[in-house]
Design a protein around this nucleic acid. Structure first.
Length: 265
DNA sequence: CTCAGTGTTCAGTG
DNA sequence: TCACTGAACACTGA
């Protein structure tokens, strides 16, 4: 669920449900991994009685803006997510944080696989982990010439560079594959080998894909039918694009990579 | 039972 | 120091 568009959709939904709401009660699970050692009590105390005024995001990180500090800062890892519940609904499985709002509704943060994180921050934007991030495509990308210069020092496969959060914040595995497919680029090409025209194609594909996915709130049923996304899942043998082009699966940059050799040279 | 997986970090290497 | 690679992490679901 959690690449940039999914996290942005979660942020917007949170904003819709939570803005202006006061926290009546908060319950935080004693999960020392997800909390990275932070005490559940501190999280509960930070939220208890606070009013939620906004929600921010950078890359795959999302946070709530309260009327006082510190603020909760979330990362979804592989399986984290937000849930919004009515007063009588049962709490979801894998619950890490639950909040009761002053309108009777409830908010929950869950994470089955526990790669997600919940922290507190006086100012998320100045957290070292956020400041180390590269360009969030939704907030804009450098011009082609500057990207080309950035790639010039990288001999790693372009797929790996796309996944590098210190270069492109928020890009994950399916977006990287979609970008390379739509830009007709071989995932294993060393980044430094890309010609200017190829960097331009990558740049516009990245912008187009992120903007479109965000515009439909990361609802993959509404992604354009031609996207690789719809046919990339699993290492399914003999899978093909609608035009008959074969999709193959390899490991590149340590991740499963779905690509179409007939199109990506 | 085995294995892949929409992510990040850290150790080891060059 | 930097860039890069691969393993580790934790757990579910196929």
């Amino acid at each position: 669920m959690p690449e940039l568009p999914e996290v942005e959709a979660a942020r917007k939904t949170a904003l819709r449900h939570l803005r202006g709401r006061r926290v009546l009660a908060a319950r935080c699970a004693p999960d020392s991994i997800v909390l990275s050692g932070l005490s559940p009590r501190r999280v509960e105390k930070a939220l208890q009685g606070a009013t939620i005024e906004g929600a921010g995001r950078f890359g795959k990180h999302v946070w709530f803006e309260l009327d006082r500090r510190p603020w909760p800062l979330f990362h979804f890892g592989m399986t984290g997510g937000f849930h919004f519940l009515g007063p009588a609904e049962p709490s979801p499985r894998f619950l890490k944080l639950e909040i009761e709002l002053d309108d009777g509704r409830r908010f929950a943060f869950t994470d089955a696989r526990r790669f997600g994180r919940l922290r507190l921050s006086g100012d998320p934007r100045s957290e070292p982990t956020l400041m180390g991030l590269g360009h969030d495509p939704l907030f804009g990308l450098p011009k082609t010439a500057d990207l080309a210069r950035l790639f010039g020092g990288r001999k790693a496969p372009i797929k790996a560079v796309l996944l590098d959060q210190t270069v492109f914040a928020g890009v994950g595995n399916w977006i990287a594959d979609e970008v390379l497919y739509q830009a007709s680029l071989h995932p294993m090409r060393p980044a430094s080998d890309l010609k200017t025209a190829e960097v331009a194609r990558l740049r516009s594909a990245l912008l187009r894909i992120i903007r479109r996915a965000v515009a439909v709130d990361a609802d993959s049923d509404r992604f354009p039918p031609g996207w690789l996304f719809h046919r990339r899942w699993g290492r399914v043998k003999n899978s093909k694009m609608p035009d008959g082009a074969a999709i193959v699966h390899d490991t590149v940059g340590g991740r499963t990579t779905a690509w179409v050799p007939s199109r990506q040279r």
